[in-house]
Design a protein around this nucleic acid. Sequence first.
DNA 1: ATTTATCATTTGCGTAGTAAAGTGATAAAT
DNA 2: ATTTATCACTTTACTACGCAAATGATAAAT
Lengths: 147, 147
Amino acid sequence: MRKHTLGSLTWIRMMRFTNQSNQLSNEFLKRFDLTTAQFDVLIQIKTYAPLTQSQLAEKVTVTQGGMSRMLARLEKEGLIERKQNWKTKTISLTAKGEQMIDTATPCQLQFQSSFFEEVLTEEEMKTLNTLMTKLEKHSREKKSPPA
Amino acid sequence: MRKHTLGSLTWIRMMRFTNQSNQLSNEFLKRFDLTTAQFDVLIQIKTYAPLTQSQLAEKVTVTQGGMSRMLARLEKEGLIERKQNWKTKTISLTAKGEQMIDTATPCQLQFQSSFFEEVLTEEEMKTLNTLMTKLEKHSREKKSPPA
DNA sequence: ATTTATCATTTGCGTAGTAAAGTGATAAAT
DNA sequence: ATTTATCACTTTACTACGCAAATGATAAAT
C-alpha cells in the first residue's frame, strides 16, 4: 500500500496542530468562562455588529442551527442581545459582552500568536501566513463555489 | 483595541481551512461510510497494530474517553477487534477493516493532497510541510510536556 | 485472603456540530 | 382578505468530543 504523500502528511500535521492548539486555547479561555468557539463568535460580532444570524453563521462556517443554539447560550449569559428587527434578528454585544471581549482579546491574541512565535522566525511566519491565505481561500471556494 | 497580530491572523485562517477541509473530507468519505476521524484511527491501527487504546488515543490526540466510544462504534461496524489482554485491551483490524482501509486510503490521500496541490507549488508545499512539522511538534510538547 | 494502589477503559454530563423538519414574519398573488 | 411563497430563525434528533467520576482488572501490601 502506498504510504503518504507530501500533501497528506502536511494535512495530518495541520489537523493535529489545530486540534491541540484549540484544546489549549479552550483551557486558556476557561478563566473568562468562554470556549474558543464562543470567543470567535464574539469577536465577529464586535467587528461586524450589527449583523444577522445568517451572516454570522456564514462568517464562522457553522450551520444556522448551530449558531442559533450558541447565541441562545451567549444571550443567557448576558453577553449578547438579539432584537427582532423587521423579519430578521439583529445581533449585538451587551455592555457585559463588550467588556468581556475587550478584556479577553489581548490575552487570547497573544496566546494564539505564541504557538507561532515560539518556534518560527518572523520570515517564516510571513511565509506561513501567505500560504494559509491561499489555502483558506481555495477551500472556501471549494465548499461554496462562487455563482 | 489592538486588532490582530500576524500570528492570530494565521491561526484563524488555519482553523478555517482545517474546518472546511475536514467537512469536505467527511463528505468525501461518506462513500465508505467513514468519518475523517475514523479513517485516521484505522490508518493508525493498520500502521501500529497491535496496540492499546491509550496508545492509540495518544497518537491521534483524542482523550481516552473519546477513543473508547469511537472504538466501540468501529467494533460494532465490524472493522476492528478488541481483545482483553492482561489488563489492557489490544486493538487490531478485522479482515473487513483491513479491506476497507486499503480501498479508501489511496482515494483519501489523493483527496487530502488536492487541497494543497491545487494552489501551491512543489516548493511551497515543502516549505509548508517543514513549518507544520515544527508547529505540530511544539504544540504537542506544550500539551503534554516531556517528563 | 482481604485491603489497597494503580492503571486502562467506560460512562455521565455538558458543549458543539449537522441535517432536516417546524415556526413565525413579511411580501406577493389571487 | 385570504392564500401562497419565501426567508430567518428555532427545534429536534443525532453524532462526536472533552472532562471527570466510576468501574474493572491486576498487582502489591498487610
